[in-house]
């Protein structure tokens, strides 16, 4: 029994190390996010002739710990825009609230046309660029999927530095390495978008999700997928990759120390 009241209810120094009181210090320079904490992995998306498909799994990781397994990383903004979030989850939640208040202000008057995906991408890119310029970045990589002002498919990205680009297919994080090459096989350029229908695009994106599940350690087989077309947004938040199994791994011979 320790007789110092300050010690009661506290982690033992000899076990957990000394507590760093400097965290309570209020003076000193303002500290901003130095690194993401709870994170979501890839977001993948592909255009097709009538719209866009976008998908992200439902996992939020805390380092290598699979911390939350039912997180919605696709956010429907309105009937023509979905935003996919990769990166820090708390920054995602902040952006979600920001989009909510934007939507409310947009709907004060009903006559004006709704914000489309292009508008929203411009807005979000400026938010991201402003925050990086303030040295206070929102640690996310966003994909904005939907329709532009002419009801044509729109897909663009914005990251924590405020960098923006658009492409017929996009993938963030690990997906940029693993999914993007697969997606580009079917959609190499803008012209090819016209030749791809919804079914093909959905199949393609699901295939990309499968590859990511197998090869990205911070991923899982529960995911959300959304299809945005002129008729609106079709969002499913609890999809499961079918028939996935690591059974085959046991049969593999010849890797590493296992030689026969």
């Amino acid at each position: 029994m320790n007789h110092l009241p300050q010690a009661w209810g506290r982690p033992r120094d000899d076990v957990y190390g000394a507590y760093d009181h400097s965290h309570f210090q209020t003076s000193g320079p303002i500290q901003h996010t130095q690194s993401p904490i709870v994170t979501g992995t890839s977001v993948v998306a592909a255009k097709f002739k009538d719209g866009v498909v976008i998908a992200a799994d439902n996992l939020a990781s805390y380092g290598s710990l699979a911390r939350f397994t039912d997180v919605k990383r696709l956010r429907k903004f309105n009937d023509q825009v979905v935003v996919g979030f990769g990166g820090d989850v708390s920054d995602m939640q902040y952006l979600d609230r920001l989009l909510n208040s934007l939507d409310i202000r947009e709907n004060y008057s009903s006559s004006e046309t709704a914000l489309n995906a292009k508008n929203l991408h411009t807005y979000l890119a400026k938010v991201m660029y402003k925050r990086r310029s303030d040295f206070n970045p929102l640690w996310n990589h966003l994909l904005i999927a939907g329709l532009d002002g002419e009801d044509k498919p729109f897909l663009a990205s914005a990251d924590l530095l405020g960098t923006t680009f658009t492409s017929p297919t996009l993938a963030t994080g690990f997906g940029a390495h693993l999914a993007q090459p697969i997606l580009r096989r079917t959609l190499p350029d803008d012209a090819s978008v016209e030749d791809v229908d919804q079914e093909t695009a959905v199949k393609l994106v699901k295939e990309a999700m499968k590859v990511l599940f197998y090869r990205d350690a911070r991923s899982m087989d529960r995911y959300s997928i959304a299809v945005i077309t002129k008729t609106g947004v079709e969002l499913h938040e609890d999809e499961k990759l079918e028939n996935q199994s690591w059974q085959f791994a046991e049969q593999i011979r010849g890797y590493g120390t296992q030689v026969n």
Binding site: T69, V71, D96
Partner: peptide, 9 residues
């Protein structure tokens, strides 16, 4: 109430 952008259900 769906809490905005909540983590998990």
């Amino acid at each position: 109430l769906p809490v905005d952008g909540q983590v998990g259900a």
